[in-house]
């Protein structure tokens, strides 16, 4: 009986690792081929099979892609958008979560439900009319317009903060108020510093979303010098048709920052995924 179980568990182990290695290969292969291709010279790209590892590493594709797609401008714009959006949306969401979690007042349930329902509406669907509103507010083709739209669609952060507040004891607030602290003081001096893990989570998640956002950027930032990194990348569709060594170089350049971020913040990202998914 016991040896039977043992043989079974050995088989299970083998099965497990074969499956996992297979999955890892499937996940990494498309990206890996892209890495190979990005480092090939045009000549090598034209003559060798795409699966071949480059003989020597060429960096000129990156230079060409970087210049042609104007990626520097894209990175700068994206960086500006990221800093402003993340700062504002952390503050806004934390404040909202504080009010919704700590105060019961008429309509607080309704407001929470309004945010819940908003998360059901797929973002792209409403853009038809948001575009019209943006147009009449004169927000199209301005970086600040794009920033404002991105702040408006921030339901994940609100959930993360709401959940975090639920685990912060109310006695913290009460004792601070006993000591003569105002509600503002309670929020900014006592609670906000304690929110740090939630802030990291929401910044990382929101940051990834903003960095990767394409649709609205394409819609609201039409002039060339306002392109963000994803719209800059999309510009490869036209001129480079089949020159995938340039395209792959461009793709890799957009992936690298995210990859570094991922290596540093792995734990927070995984944690944030779970927190964002369990919506109350």
């Amino acid at each position: 009986m016991k040896s039977q179980i043992k043989i079974g568990s050995i088989f299970f182990s083998i099965f497990k690792y074969v499956m996992l290695i297979g999955a890892a290969v499937m996940s990494l292969l498309p990206v890996a081929v892209c890495v190979f291709t990005a480092f090939k010279s045009t000549e090598e790209y034209n003559t060798t099979s795409v699966l071949d590892v480059p003989k020597e590493f060429h960096f000129e594709n990156f230079a060409v892609a970087f210049k042609q797609a104007n990626m520097l401008q894209g990175f700068i714009n994206t960086a500006i958008v990221l800093v402003v959006v993340l700062t504002c949306s952390v503050l806004i969401s934390a404040m909202l979560a504080y009010v919704l979690n700590r105060f019961r007042f008429r309509g607080s349930g309704l407001i929470q439900n309004l945010f819940m329902f908003a998360s059901l509406i797929p973002g792209i669907a409403t853009q038809v009319t948001v575009y019209q509103i943006m147009f009449s507010l004169g927000l199209i083709n301005h970086l600040y317009g794009y920033i404002i739209v991105l702040m408006g669609t921030d339901i994940i952060s609100i959930y993360i903060f709401l959940q975090f507040f639920e685990n912060l004891p109310v006695s913290l607030d009460e004792s601070a108020i006993m000591d003569g602290c105002t509600y503002f003081g309670v929020f900014f001096k006592i609670l906000f510093p304690l929110l740090k893990p939630a802030i990291v989570t929401s910044v990382v998640l929101k940051g990834v979303n903003v960095y990767n956002e394409y649709y609205m950027s394409n819609l609201y930032l039409q002039s060339k010098e306002l392109r963000t990194i994803s719209t800059a990348l999309y510009a490869f569709t036209g001129p480079y048709g089949n020159q995938y060594n340039y395209i792959c170089a461009g793709v890799l350049m957009t992936i690298v920052p995210i990859f570094i971020l991922f290596l540093i913040f792995q734990r927070q990202i995984y944690g944030g995924m779970a927190a964002g998914a369990v919506k109350g």
């Binding site: 999955a23 890892a24 996940s27 990494l28 498309p30 990206v31 892209c34 990834v208 960095y211 990767n212 394409y214 990194i229 994803s230 990348l233 999309y234 490869f236 395209i247 792959c248 461009g250 793709v251 957009t254 992936i255 995210i258 990859f259 991922f262 792995q266 990202i269 995984y270």
Partner: peptide
């Protein structure tokens, strides 16, 4: 990490890949 990472790549890059 290997299985999760594709999620972080932007949709346009995934498209090109």
């Amino acid at each position: 990490g290997a299985m999760f990472f594709p999620y972080l790549i932007c949709g346009i890059a995934v498209g090109f890949i």
